[in-house]
């Protein structure tokens, strides 16, 4: 409890004023950020008759929690949720494995052409996805993978440039002594990676896992082009079909209930991970 006292003592009144000004500005901005979410929840709890009113009601007179149940069942959310989680979890597994495995080669082992491959990998970060889109689609089409989950999952096992980069930067900071002594004890290089490097990489792996989860969960384009069968859809694609479909038509309260449900998984993950996650990015930093 003595920190705030010191905190005040150290500051001039001008600095205190600045801090208060900053806090007020931040509060205003935070309100702007939150209004859309508030509007979403507000709409999702309304009765049909309350949705299109002028002036609008911000707090529904009688919150209709049942809207969530209706949206869930009418839109067959269970199916889309299980499709989505199957894809997301496999993609996470593939991404974590390939990034942590490949990065070890780039960080620790010397081989001709290694740095060239690494630079090439980083250069692909600037390549617009559209360039590889059509040939990749045609390739998956040719081997009969269109309308299966495979085009969404398999590429994850072949290393994402940004995550390989993050893992490599992290490995480089680990002192070599641990690996050297394990080597003396007769461990193979693969055992060293698995038993020594991976357990030390918890924070980076967690960061990559969160990024991958959010990215894959929110991805719309890939499932849109590869999954044409309605029963194969992910939540993201299914939502666009709900909009204006006969199932809910113009019933905005049900659509917003569905949208509210759809943002829960990334929201929960973020709330669990945020302190550590936001701080992780801030303190490790990204050096340009």
């Amino acid at each position: 409890m003595h920190t705030p006292v010191r905190w005040f003592r150290r500051r001039s009144s001008q600095q205190l004023l600045m801090a208060i000004g900053a806090a007020l500005l931040l509060l205003g901005g935070a309100t702007v950020i939150m209004v859309p979410f508030f509007w979403m929840i507000s709409t999702s709890l309304k009765q049909a008759g309350e949705v299109y009113l002028m002036p609008p009601i911000w707090i529904p007179s009688d919150p209709q929690w049942v809207n969530f149940v209706t949206a869930w069942t009418r839109l067959n959310f269970s199916l889309y949720a299980s499709n989505t989680f199957l894809i997301v979890s496999t993609v996470m597994l593939g991404t974590l494995f390939s990034a942590s495995f490949a990065a070890y080669g780039f960080a620790r082992l010397r081989a001709p052409g290694r740095d060239f491959i690494f630079m090439l990998l980083l250069a692909t970060l600037m390549l617009p996805g559209a360039v590889t889109l059509v040939p990749t689609y045609l390739m998956f089409n040719k081997i009969g993978w269109v309308n299966t989950f495979l085009p969404l999952i398999v590429p994850a096992f072949f290393g994402n440039a940004f995550y390989v980069f993050l893992m490599r930067q992290f490995y480089i900071t680990i002192p070599r002594e641990l690996e050297e002594s394990a080597m003396m004890d007769g461990a193979t290089i693969y055992q060293i990676w698995w038993h020594i490097m991976l357990p030390l990489s918890g924070p980076v792996l967690a960061t990559i896992a969160v990024f991958t989860f959010v990215g894959t969960y929110n991805d719309f384009f890939t499932p849109l082009i590869y999954l044409s069968d309605v029963t194969m859809h992910t939540i993201a694609v299914a939502l666009t079909y709900f909009q204006g479909s006969a199932k809910i038509g113009p019933k905005m309260h049900l659509l917003m209930a569905a949208v509210s449900i759809s943002v829960i998984p990334p929201l929960v993950l973020f709330l669990f991970a945020q302190r550590y996650f936001v701080r992780g990015i801030v303190t490790t930093g990204i050096k340009g």
């Binding site: 509007w39 939502l239 949208v259 943002v263």
Partner: peptide, 10 residues
């Protein structure tokens, strides 16, 4: 974090 289709509809 909460981007994507749902928020676009919002």
């Amino acid at each position: 974090v909460i981007s994507g289709v749902g928020v676009a509809m919002l």
